[in-house]
């Protein structure tokens, strides 16, 4: 079985983070494999978002390590981790409200040292790329609109496009379907699948079980800050520990 497992992409060992007395992430040891759509599910407050924040450097873990493609990235600043190839979205969609859609995209352009000080926000090639991504998520006609004026769904699409702008290999999405209508959930799902076909690895926190079951190759179940079960969607759905965590049986 292990013979045809894809290579490891993101790994954590004993990752731990407490807030005061609350152990939000409690010794989480998980491996996510390259090229898969991995889902991370678990009840509210089980530490999924905190896990994301520890991995992406937004929060420094109290203990444990994060390894990405064989390299230790624990405690590195977020922009370094982003540049290493991990893109992420936020649970409550975050865009730059008072910048235009196109400017939002250009924020993610790779810094070029002192050349950042002169010249435009993005080279013609980068601006082109931004526009192509906007076409891809379907909001290119809004490129000159301030992001605050977009609907919530459009902001979610913009956030996803912005993440793609940095050419990440691994994309971490925190509840991409949260607060979004069914039509758009379908579209986001299609986008994820297409991007995965192009070789992107996904790590998706999601409560929408239909989406999780139909989309993911591998599911990890979190409870009280650590994984309690993992496997294929159907195996996880049948796992009694999962039912217990979710339903308190």
């Amino acid at each position: 079985m292990t013979a045809h497992e894809p290579p490891r992409s993101l790994e954590t060992v004993d990752l731990t983070k407490s807030f005061g007395g609350v152990r939000a992430v409690d010794g989480a040891t998980v491996t996510f494999r390259h090229g898969r759509i991995n889902a991370l599910i678990g009840p509210n407050g089980s530490g999924k978002t905190t896990f994301f924040n520890c991995v992406t450097g937004m929060i420094r873990p109290d203990a444990g390590t994060v390894t990405y493609r064989g390299q230790q990235i624990t405690g590195r600043p977020p922009h370094r981790i982003a540049r290493a190839g991990i893109g992420r979205s936020f649970q409550l969609c975050r865009v730059f409200p008072r910048m235009t859609v196109l400017e939002n995209m250009l924020v993610a352009v790779r810094p070029a040292g002192l050349r950042d000080l002169v010249g435009g926000a993005g080279s013609p090639a980068e601006t082109d790329k931004a526009r192509r991504l906007l076409v891809r998520v379907g909001i290119d006609h809004l490129e000159n609109v301030e992001a605050a004026n977009l609907s919530y769904g459009q902001q979610k699409l913009l956030e996803l496009a912005g993440v793609l702008m940095g050419d990440p290999d691994t994309i971490m999405l925190d509840e991409p379907a949260g607060g979004v209508n069914p039509a758009l959930i379908g579209r986001i799902g299609t986008l994820i699948r297409e991007l995965n076909d192009e070789g992107k690895t996904f790590l998706v926190v999601e409560h929408n079980m239909d989406m999780v079951m139909s989309l993911s190759h591998h599911v990890v179940v979190f409870d009280r800050g650590r994984p309690i079960a993992e496997g294929t969607p159907s195996a996880v759905r049948a796992d009694p520990r999962v039912l217990e965590a979710y339903l308190g049986i």
């Binding site: 992406t56 450097g57 937004m58 600043p77 977020p78 922009h79 982003a82 540049r83 893109g87 992420r88 936020f90 975050r94 865009v95 730059f96 409200p97 008072r98 910048m99 924020v107 993610a108 790779r110 810094p111 912005g162 993440v163 702008m165 940095g166």
Partner: peptide, 10 residues
């Protein structure tokens, strides 16, 4: 606008 978000975008 959003410092954390900017960091997350690199």
């Amino acid at each position: 606008e959003d410092e954390d978000k900017a960091q997350a975008l690199g």
